[in-house]
Design a protein around this nucleic acid. Sequence first.
DNA 1: TTCGATTTGTTCGTATGTATT
DNA 2: TAATACATACGAACAAATCGA
Lengths: 268, 268
Amino acid sequence: MIKSSYVFLHCSTRVVTALRAFAAGGPAAQPLYIEVKNRITRSLIAGEWQPGAAIPSESRLAQQFKVSVGTIRKAIDQLVAEKIVVRQQGRGTFVSIHTEDRQFYYFFHIVSRDGGKEPPTHELLSLQTVKADVQTAAQLGIRQGERLHRVHNVLKLAGNPVIFDELRVAAARFTDLNASSFGARDGTIYGLYQARYGINVVRISERLSAALPSARVARVLGVDRGTPLLVIKRVAYTYHDEPVELRTSWVNTRDHEYLSDLWKSEPR
Amino acid sequence: MIKSSYVFLHCSTRVVTALRAFAAGGPAAQPLYIEVKNRITRSLIAGEWQPGAAIPSESRLAQQFKVSVGTIRKAIDQLVAEKIVVRQQGRGTFVSIHTEDRQFYYFFHIVSRDGGKEPPTHELLSLQTVKADVQTAAQLGIRQGERLHRVHNVLKLAGNPVIFDELRVAAARFTDLNASSFGARDGTIYGLYQARYGINVVRISERLSAALPSARVARVLGVDRGTPLLVIKRVAYTYHDEPVELRTSWVNTRDHEYLSDLWKSEPR
DNA sequence: TTCGATTTGTTCGTATGTATT
DNA sequence: TAATACATACGAACAAATCGA
């Protein structure tokens, strides 16, 4: 049996809330750990820590921000829950990257009807630069008439074309996007955004419906025009809910389905 | 400026892990707060605290389980994340109920194309008792040939039929399920399960595809048989991932879409 | 309306366990 | 082995919301 005794002299000098409100000079009145979370997020946006790299340790951040480790912990807890960073015991806390399987499948929901998830292969069909119409501009938070890159893409599973994709991104954000950079990428498209343009997709919102294919989509997917397809309209967001990509996917659901698993706080 | 001084005599006698492993008499070796979470979940399953009722306060649970409040807090944090309970500052912690809007829309993903969520109205079409085929039995965790209730239902939004539903549940679990109890319910179907059968649906998994309607579905939804529909196959689970209901929905996506918002840890 | 008791929310700090390097 | 980093657990104090006397 191990026993130990300590004597503390604890001088509590806490007028924290008042001090914080004063320091902020504003009516903020939000919890300290939220402010800490926002400051960390701002550093992430500024590119202070690159994807895959470790952010400073909890104790170091506690010193920098002059708060307790517990408060840092609670701030990072939220970033972990939003999958913006990942923790590894004994190693550190790392900015999420899109090259890892888990991260990838978090954004890819098409699975084989018999359960298995297969690695897809991509094929670029076309890459154009067009002007944004009013609706697209509104969704991307840009002005009508600004330039867009529009990419058409086909995605094959087990060798067969299953998904026809149309991506639209603001050309201003993705300056030198071209067919070769697109084709030469190692991993996922979001991995490319992250590695080449410093844009981290951290959340997506999707709207699904059923529709018949256009002639082109039918041809690419090898189905006739009476075959019902699953249509997925996706908006991808970076930090602070800023939209960065619009994507419409047409999916042949003969052998595949869209999996929406709501939801499991993955147990350890 | 407020100042205060304290003197602690801290006698640390912690061989906690060893003690716990010994007390449990097993190879558990899992964190204390996970054990606490499981004990609370077991009480929930046992119906010890009814939906809508408060569970004991954190300090009381800490006394009962002989752990610190912080450990209770961490256990309840997880139950909150899984939406099994909800916390209210100054009031207590309550078992989730399915009559509340937020809880409802957590399981209902059909929205109008122009954004708004409308309250749906239900209409019961039929309620039969049939024998489970091998696949249905496997999915529900029962034996082939056991009795099922099969319910057909139409769901209207803004007065128009939009969704055709087929539900299947084990008759053994839902003994006296009949048309009148089904029609007389106040709120949602899961609210009925909860109030009348003590079964809490806490998670669902859905697989989506596109298909053409059968003659019956087309007739009920008022579309022709060439109209592509969104097909949703859902499994609803109660505590510990036990499946309790299978549901297939056929959705007319002319004016509505399926919203998959992945995902936002709702800010406060 | 005020006050006090109760309950969750936030913040601090310490000690120790466990994984990584 | 030692240092570092996250994980778990404990405990305390105060803030904020709620509710009944």
